[in-house]
Write a protein that binds this DNA or RNA. Structure first.
Lengths: 257, 257
DNA sequence: GGCAAAGTTTTCAATATTGAAACAACCACG
DNA sequence: CGTGGTTGTTTCAATATTGAAAACTTTGCC
């Protein structure tokens, strides 16, 4: 059950015998690197994955996949288990933590997520816009009910037809939130509100829980909670600008190779 | 502008032109990918960075750096500002969030970090072993004092000579924690304890605060707190093993050839 | 305007990467 | 105890990538 990754799909593929015309091809991108990144994504989409599985999904010959994965391993972007399978490496975790930490919104959102959980018992998420018309869940606070939605952090979803997509595109009604039942997965109800800031939508807060527990009245109550938190977060973002304004270069250079 | 950059650099031996030895080099890694990953790391090390600065730090010709960065951009691993400078992209944030989310330890550690902050007011961190003898800070809860240590999340440090390194290598005294004053940075005191689990050390909990506020007595009190939380976390990890317990083969996915 | 610095694009010989095939292991099964 | 299927690994001709230099654009500054 990946879910991730599937989105990419390489656009073309299949039988490549003909395609002489090509010409357009890739606008000066490096094939080697694209492939390595695709492999990295495949590795991240699973807890751990074997070489051949990974190669198959990325549609690469095993020998090439092996070489690239070994390179990724050499830089610490993937790790290798005792049994030879691959998993996300420490370097990736580091860069991810660093990139996430720079997203001020993650830090700012946490208290609100926590309050949402305290008020509802359901799992609360923060999502942002990803590449290619996708939404990405980048933070969550787990709910307190025994039956609850469990981690979607890192998951990416298409914007189309989902509540989170409508929120991120600011396509919502006057209530300030949008809810949907059983859309992506049966028995899951999503309640989402956009985090608006001067420049546009910075992200979205979501509450995800089992449909059976959320009747219409509860849904509206939760919706107001989510919308309130999203508004408050938007205000904070408006006050504290997102990033260091000046072109000032930071002198430090860390990262061990 | 420029100026800085070159000066700081790699901390060891001045002239690095040669690197003749080579031995390490060719062990079946692909240069292209290594370079792209180095560029990715450079981009992540800064809020945003220009092409030439990035190329200089990675010691690559501008034309190559541009090609590789564009490839990274094409996959969403880096983004480009309106002014052309590069920054971490959504895809990286996604994979990072996913990888971090999979590190069960992050989720488990959070309550403990929170308790540490509640008890001391200082910022609390979780660190794990990174590649190449480094430690990586992957989670934190910010302290409550007006003067406090602020985010090192994503930062990587050498193990050698640092308290966090000794904890991660389990080279600590009988007290169950190790503390150091003003080692890495003046006026910063670190109090660290290893999170031990059956297989070895899973990570380390750190409390970081200004030296002037932490006298010897306070230091020992905090040390006990940190050590207690680390022990408790280690126990939890021992009970709830990290996912995929067995050497379970990669599952199914039986696409016909 | 004119100068300097940075970003972008182009070219093509020199060099690095690729992948089909071959191998060695391993596993499951009859 | 093979037989057939799978996986991880290595090899080396065929192919893609590289980078110095030059040309061009843009931007900032005096």
């Amino acid at each position: 059950m990946t879910g991730l990754s599937a989105a990419i799909s390489t656009g073309e593929s299949g039988d490549m015998s003909g395609d002489v015309s090509g010409a357009i091809a890739s606008n000066s991108t490096t094939r080697t690197v694209d492939r390595a990144l695709a492999l990295l994504a495949e590795v991240c989409a699973e807890d751990s994955i074997s070489l051949s599985e990974c190669a198959r999904r990325a549609q690469l010959p095993a020998s090439t996949a092996l070489r690239l994965l070994r390179t990724l391993e050499g830089s610490g972007f993937v790790d290798r288990d005792y049994d030879g399978s691959f998993r996300a490496g420490a370097r990736l975790i580091q860069l991810g933590a660093s990139a996430l930490g720079r997203q001020g919104i993650v830090r700012l959102a946490e208290p609100g997520l926590r309050r949402m959980v305290a008020a509802t018992g359901e799992s609360a998420y923060l999502a942002i816009l990803g590449p290619n018309e996708t939404a990405i869940y980048i933070a969550m606070v787990e709910g307190t009910h025994a039956v609850r939605h469990t981690s979607w952090v890192g998951r990416s979803l298409p914007l189309a037809n989902l509540a989170v997509g409508r929120a991120l595109l600011d396509d919502i009604g006057p209530a300030g939130y949008v809810a949907e039942r059983d859309r992506l997965e049966p028995d899951v109800t999503a309640i989402v509100a956009p985090i608006r800031r001067p420049g546009g939508v910075a992200g979205a807060l979501s509450l995800l829980g089992p449909t059976y527990r959320i009747d219409d009245k509860t849904l509206h109550r939760y919706g107001d909670i989510v919308a309130d938190e999203a508004r408050s977060l938007g205000t904070q973002l408006g006050i504290a600008p997102p990033r260091s304004p000046g072109p000032a270069r930071t002198p430090r250079q860390e990262t061990g190779t």
